[in-house]
Amino acid sequence: MSDHIENGVEESFISHLVELRDRLVRASIGIALMCALLMLWPGPSAIYDFLAQPMLASLPAGAKMIATGVISPFLVPMKVTLLIAFMLALPWVLYQAWAFVAPGLYTHEKKLIAPLVISSSLLFLGGVAFCYFLVFGRVFKFINEFAPASISVAPDIENYLDFIMSMCLAFGVTFEVPVVVVVLVRMGLVPLEKLKAIRSYVIVGAFVIAAIVTPPDIVSQFSLALPMWLLYELGLLVAPLFVKATQAPAEQD
């Protein structure tokens, strides 16, 4: 009897590993296909030129960025293309993660996971778009106007890539604040009233985090801190509705 149980447990474990492998392969294929499409059109060079536009717009007329590495002109656009491919394929990647855990969830739990996957993807991409279209231009303009006239500003493309990746990641993660609030309330980890009571501390914390992860200028700090606070307020508004919509039958009774 015990042998049958052990064999069943082992087979179940192996089947879960096979399922996990298949989901990882599908997620990787999705990223690879998106990367291949971006390689064909518009191409790595055009993608990097698009990402470099906020910096180039803030430089003097005719100024360009520089590449100090031998293979940087090839390697950096390829890295950017892979990064964009991952972000565009993020909903597919998160769907594979959801599909892996969904069979073991109750119906009310599935109601919890699916909206979180969709909202997390949209909020992360929204944070990246907010950073690119509304923040970069103002930050680069402020920095270049602050630079002394004796300095010729010619950013290195690798340093620029590192900077925009860190900034986009910071804003993408910051825009996940409503999801964090909803999860904390739905899982019963922190009561909604407690989250409302610590609102003032959250505002101070938002400005502290913004001062750490953004350049030392007031424009970029406010550009990160204010959305973080407003998204926290949005999470407080959405959390009760989400909790009510995803209650188990026993909880409703």
Rank of each mutant, 00 (worst) to 15 (best):
M1I: 03
D3H: 10
E11M: 07
S12Q: 14
I14Q: 14
L17F: 11
V18L: 14
D22I: 02
R23W: 04
L24C: 11
V25T: 08
V25I: 15
S28L: 15
S28E: 03
G30F: 02
I31K: 02
I31C: 06
A32H: 01
A32C: 11
L33K: 04
A36R: 05
D49I: 02
F50Y: 14
A52C: 10
P54D: 02
M55D: 09
L56E: 12
A57Y: 03
P60A: 02
A61N: 11
G62L: 08
A63D: 13
A63S: 14
A63H: 14
A67L: 05
T68D: 12
V70R: 03
I71T: 13
P73M: 10
L75T: 14
M78E: 08
K79H: 00
K79N: 02
L82F: 13
L83E: 04
A85F: 05
F86Y: 01
A89S: 15
P91Q: 06
P91T: 05
V93G: 01
L94A: 05
A97Q: 05
W98F: 13
P103R: 12
P103S: 11
H108K: 04
K110Y: 03
K110M: 10
L112S: 02
P115L: 05
I118P: 01
I118M: 09
S119D: 03
S121F: 09
S121N: 11
F124M: 12
V128I: 15
A129L: 14
C131T: 12
F142A: 15
N144H: 06
P148M: 08
S150G: 00
S152M: 06
V153I: 15
V153P: 01
D156I: 12
I157G: 09
N159Q: 12
Y160Q: 13
Y160H: 15
Y160F: 15
D162L: 11
M165K: 04
M165G: 01
S166I: 04
V180Q: 05
V180D: 02
V181H: 03
V182G: 00
V190Y: 05
P191Q: 10
P191V: 08
P191E: 11
K196M: 11
K196D: 06
I198H: 04
R199C: 11
S200I: 10
Y201D: 08
V202Q: 06
V202Y: 06
V202L: 07
V202R: 05
I203D: 02
V204N: 00
G205V: 09
G205E: 09
F207L: 10
V208L: 14
A210D: 04
A210W: 04
I212A: 10
T214Y: 07
T214L: 03
P215R: 02
D217K: 06
D217G: 07
I218W: 11
V219G: 05
S220R: 02
P227Y: 06
M228C: 08
M228L: 15
L231H: 07
Y232M: 04
Y232P: 00
L234F: 07
L237H: 08
V238D: 06
P240S: 09
L241A: 09
V243A: 08
A245F: 09
A245G: 03
T246H: 07
A248M: 05
A248E: 09
P249A: 08
E251A: 12
Q252G: 13
